[in-house]
Design a binder for these strands. Structure first.
Length: 718
DNA sequence: ATAGCCAATGTG
DNA sequence: ACATTGGCTATG
């Protein structure tokens, strides 16, 4: 309802009196005129006999014209101008005096065909139907609208994320996928039996019910198969299923498991690796209802699966689940919207646990799918900690820059199999810290981080590039520097020297290894790029520089560190088979304790309780309003925020130095920006988003510039 | 966004 | 008196 003739829905809050009056007059005039029996269009255009009006979503991501526009359907396009079809229309400078070709051609989607229009003026004809393929069907449109509403964003922006770009060849080619096959038999519960509620969950899915669960997966290699079995169970009920994974590797694993279960032809893999055309071909097969099951990465969260029985997400704490494009929807939240709208099953699985998942359990919306403590102990490795005080005592360990315990664990484990070394950052150049107090070393000129340049040269600032001879710590006055974080390459080199008889392999963003054989080797990897170890898994894992991960000034630092550790530790063989994990972090810290006890759910529960106390998300819903101080103040004043909304701040954002690379969404160098947080209790999230969206749209329509950003669920609070 | 319109300002 | 420009409006 909000989209058609949007002006009438919500009068702008702070309209000057004159404008209000004008709007009123316009409104009255429009209401007074009954819809014409036949819409007028440009002279000479022959219109479609039936439903000559097409309601079009114009593909311009501008919030203030985020509504539908009516166009006339020329008779020649009648058959092709179907709802959901991509079209091109003239948009912009309108006709004057009958007809004028002004404005440019823009892309859009037909949303609806109608007999008449509410628009009193002359309708422009659709310029071209790009393809009759109904790519924006009613279900997908409703989902996109819900996501736009959830994130205070523009519908057209969301549609751009949801509908892949057109590849004409893929449309012409015969549709992929097997001819309609009977549903597969429900798979037996298998390793799901390790979870008391597992077999019942699968049975419910197979019988057509819609159970919702948060699944704390046991460590080990079974989760792709288990996830595939949940999808297969939904298929067995005759419904469709969708799983979203954080990266292409994980998606490929689930895809392979699913192929082993139900064969080829029933499901597609939607990832970026496939290439645009193959991807569009598969997407079309899903949209046409020829394939009922999708396994994919982030963008697959919108996949138009027919008759959804299950939506699933793996490792929802992985940052890649948030699309970085406007309005930055998170796959978990989109799938939650789908589960609620379509009343389908929901499965959120991970080795770790986010506070959002804990919240789903706390409210009772989802049920836990977790193993008993005994089962956890039986499959988890032994976790040991190495604190900062635990220095390298023997020379061999010192040569490897490793404390004794870590070094001896690695040496021992290398007799039995591969050893995983997780390093938090990539690259060769380490950042530096004060050797005495461990405070990060900062540039005396601009406070940027100091970086070692190698070759005995003095360290250099990572922001302004100045050399800093004669550095002294601002905290304690110390003058000696130590390496703070060592990247994967450097770590690999040093470990190679320490264990000369063992092959060293690295896996990182550039070259990600999929798997390593069950043979002694050192495998140095950045988080998320860890190869799977074949056979029983890694003999040991070394989690380096835990304190660097934990010292980030981020509300989620602990959760994120624990998530990365657990994802790596889950690749290590069980304690009963000698699997050991050594984490370099203070044992007293809560995330470290949660790792040692292998209790991610308990950690998430406690984090959630703490957030609830502080009024932080996800217990409350937050939005960030960012921009120049006056602009932020004006927007907040103009917005009709729900009565239970609470405005925190605004507070000034750090002024970026000229030398620092500009962050997207941040202030341009030298400008002072502020950020206010708006917080509402559960239940008022939709009203908050609607209020901010309306206020921002009104602002964009009026003033010349002064950008204000509105971000629902801001990531970097705290 | 972007074109068009109007009013206010600048120029011959 | 006319061109130029900036603000405001609407986009079917």
């Amino acid at each position: 309802m909000s989209s058609e003739n949007g002006r009438s829905d919500r009068p702008p809050a702070q309209d000057p009196p004159g404008g209000e009056q004008l709007a009123l007059i316009r409104e009255t005039v429009r209401r007074a005129k009954p819809p014409r029996a036949r819409p007028r269009t440009w002279r000479g255009a022959e219109l479609a006999e039936r439903d000559p009006v097409a309601r079009v979503l114009v593909d311009k991501g501008l919030l203030h014209l985020d509504r539908l526009f009516d166009y006339a359907v020329p008779a020649a396009m009648d058959a092709e101008a179907r709802p959901g079809a991509r079209v091109r229309v003239r948009f912009g400078a309108g006709e004057r005096g009958g007809r004028r070709e002004g404005g440019g051609l823009v892309n859009g989607f037909i949303v609806e065909r109608r007999a008449d229009s509410d628009f009193p003026g002359v309708l422009a004809p659709i310029a071209q139907v790009l393809s009759p393929e109904p790519v924006l069907g009613p279900g997908l449109l409703r989902l996109c609208r819900a996501v736009a509403d959830r994130y205070a964003g523009a519908l057209a922006d969301v549609v751009q994320l949801a509908v892949p770009p057109r590849m004409a060849r893929a449309e012409k080619a015969p549709a992929a996928g097997a001819p309609a096959a009977p549903p597969p038999r429900p798979p037996e519960a298998s390793s799901w039996a390790r979870y008391p509620a597992g077999p019942g969950y699968l049975r419910a899915l197979a019988e057509g019910e819609s159970p919702r669960a948060v699944w704390t997966a046991l460590p080990g290699p079974h989760w792709p198969d288990e996830l595939a079995r949940a999808l297969a169970a939904a298929l067995a009920s005759g419904r469709g299923a969708l799983a979203v994974l954080p990266d292409g590797r994980a998606a490929a694993r689930v895809d392979a498991a699913l192929t082993a279960l139900v064969g080829d032809g029933r499901h597609v893999l939607l990832t970026a690796d496939a290439g645009a055309e193959a991807r569009y071909r598969r997407w079309l097969a899903v949209n046409r209802g020829l394939v009922r099951c999708v396994v994919g990465t982030r963008a697959a969260m919108f996949a138009p699966v027919h008759d959804l029985g299950l939506v699933a997400i793996w490792d929802d704490g992985d940052p890649s689940h948030r699309d970085p494009r406007e309005p930055m929807p998170h796959a978990r939240e989109v799938l939650l919207l789908r589960a609620a709208r379509d009343r389908c099953g929901f499965l959120l699985g991970a080795h770790s646990g986010t506070v959002e998942a804990a919240q789903l359990l706390r409210t009772g919306w989802a049920r836990p799918l977790a193993a008993d403590r005994d089962a956890v102990r039986a499959s988890a490795p032994l976790v040991r900690t190495v604190g900062d005080g635990d220095e390298a005592r023997d020379p061999a360990a010192r040569a490897a820059r490793l404390p004794t315990l870590a070094w001896s664990t690695v040496r021992e484990a290398l007799r039995r199999g591969p050893v995983l070394v997780q390093v938090p950052r990539r690259g060769y150049v380490p950042r530096l810290a004060c050797d005495r107090c461990r405070e990060p070393a900062r540039c005396a000129h601009c406070s940027g981080p100091l970086e070692a340049t190698g070759g005995g040269a003095p360290p250099r600032c990572g922001w302004c590039g100045r050399d800093t001879p004669g550095w002294a710590c601002a905290e304690c006055g110390g003058t000696r520097l130590r390496g703070r974080v060592f990247g994967a390459r450097r770590t690999a080199e040093e470990l190679g020297r320490a264990f000369p008889s063992v092959p060293v392999r690295t896996s990182g963003r550039d070259h990600v290894l999929d798997a390593v054989p069950d043979r002694p080797a050192l495998v140095v990897s950045t988080p998320g790029a860890e190869p799977v170890a074949e056979g029983p898994g890694y003999a040991a894992a070394l989690l380096l520089d835990g304190w660097a991960l934990l010292s980030r000034p981020d509300l989620r630092a602990g959760e994120e560190a624990l998530r990365r550790w657990l994802d790596a530790a889950a690749l290590v063989r069980p304690h009963t088979e000698g699997g050991t994990v050594v984490v370099m972090a203070e044992p007293a810290l809560r995330p470290v304790q949660a790792l040692v006890r292998w209790d991610p759910a308990g950690y998430a529960r406690r984090e959630l309780a703490e957030r609830a106390e502080l009024g932080f998300p996800p217990v409350s819903r937050m939005a960030a309003v960012t921009g120049p101080p006056e602009a932020v103040a004006e927007l907040l004043a103009a917005a009709e925020l729900p009565s239970d909304a609470e405005v925190l701040g605004p507070v000034p954002l750090p002024v970026p130095d000229a030398g620092r690379p500009r962050r997207p969404g941040g202030p341009p160098p030298g400008e002072r920006w502020e950020r206010a947080l708006v917080r509402v209790p559960p239940g008022s999230g939709a009203a908050l988003a609607a209020a901010l969206r309306t206020a921002r749209a009104a602002r964009l329509a009026r003033r010349g510039s002064e950008p204000v950003r509105v971000r629902v669920d801001p990531e970097d609070i705290g």
